[in-house]
Design a protein around this nucleic acid. Structure first.
Lengths: 215, 215
DNA sequence: TTAAAACTTGACCAGTCGGTAAAAACTCAA
DNA sequence: TTGAGTTTTTACCGACTGGTCAAGTTTTAA
């Protein structure tokens, strides 16, 4: 499997209003279903039902199951990585990291499906986005690792490995969406109490930032 | 789906030598396959082939696919949680955490299949081990969270939330097995260099422990 | 108004997969 | 050696699922 462009509808390559609407409806439904059941665990019928249309109709917009999957991934990837893009080399390091972590936690809470979709894809060897990981993602991370390394060499951060720091931030923030059931099993229904998200952010921030500040 | 006992072979409930061997062969094969493809993504034929026997023969030992899956999970769970059990309330807090983190990282590197198996199960809502999570696991974590809380109140650790600390340790250590492809895509083949595992351990340890030490 | 293009659907097909049936092959204690 | 119990295999079934087809309905541009 490999990342590929969205298959258009027949003959003409113009995108009609109906196409625009239905593609979006399908991709929204697909995200919901794929993120819960994974690629193999998802049936086209499930997506079609959630999208409120028949299977052949759905297949009119996306010729194969993989096309839907690749499109959902593509759509969500950019949004998911934007916060890292915004890590500002000129800002205050601790403040920048605080912003980044807060935002990632916020995304995890607000859109856990996206996180789970990736987690599942990567867990299964990233068949559809391997190339993306090795090019775009690597480039972005290398860039930001450089930023962090400079912060360190300027004495603004403790001498930490930037890559492992980034991995730790990813792992920790996404844990709360990917392993939601486990978190719930252990913390019980306090997870649903109003202030929980803020408490979590507070705890995670102080843990990571303390490990990163100069002493 | 729910956790269930291993289905024995027919009539007599005595476990023969052949049964013992074949059950183990099957469970080893099953761990390999399930951890890569997940429950739905795995076919009984795949497991049977890896185990070197025919599908009906495999089904002679485990009546249904779910039984194999449940058995593999059950078998691996205990081993996976043992290090947390060994967190010693009487030891030096930072040293105990160092040991725990090191051991988890070591397990992630040595037996990534186990980690991936759980990650996959939990990611999909933990249908087979929900009950385990809510009872055994919760009890264990509550216990150890208490230990950490006491360390904090004795002034031996910075004032951190014990649950979020545990989550962070889990998330970070398992990241290296669960998201192996992503780590590889970003770090390249340095991952396979001899000292890599030690470097990672060093980086992760200093990050987490710095966040935890009293200042 | 109209006809071409776009959209939708019911019927269906072929491959896959979990699981069964029944009989053959093997093991082992007496 | 023998036969009861255990293990293995061949053949097969029915449900599911990804995807196709052809015919119908709706939309849209002229």
């Amino acid at each position: 499997m490999d990342m590929m462009a969205t298959a258009g509808a027949e003959k003409n390559d113009r995108t009609t209003r109906i196409q625009e609407i239905n593609r979006k409806v399908i991709l929204d439904a697909a995200l919901e279903v794929f993120s819960v059941y994974g690629f193999r665990g998802t049936t086209i019928d499930q997506i079609a039902e959630k999208a409120g249309m028949s299977k052949p109709n759905l297949l009119y917009y996306f010729k194969r199951k993989q096309d839907i999957y690749a499109s959902v991934l593509e759509e969500t990837l950019e949004e998911w990585l934007r916060p890292l893009h915004e890590l500002n080399p000129l800002g205050d390091p601790v403040e920048e990291l605080r912003r980044y972590i807060s935002f990632k936690l916020h995304m995890s809470a607000k859109k856990p499906e996206a996180s789970r979709l990736f987690a599942n894809e990567i867990l299964h060897g990233a068949p559809a986005i391997q190339n993306f990981l090795k090019t775009s993602l690597k480039k972005l991370v290398d860039e930001k690792a450089d930023v962090i390394r400079q912060w360190v060499s300027q004495g603004k951060l403790a001498p930490i490995d930037p890559y492992h720091l980034i991995f730790m931030i990813w792992a920790t923030t996404q844990h709360y969406s990917d392993f939601d059931v486990q978190v719930r099993a252990i913390l019980g229904n306090q997870v649903d109490r109003p202030g929980f998200h803020e408490q979590t952010a507070q705890a995670v921030l102080s843990l990571i930032l303390n490990g990163v500040k100069v002493r």
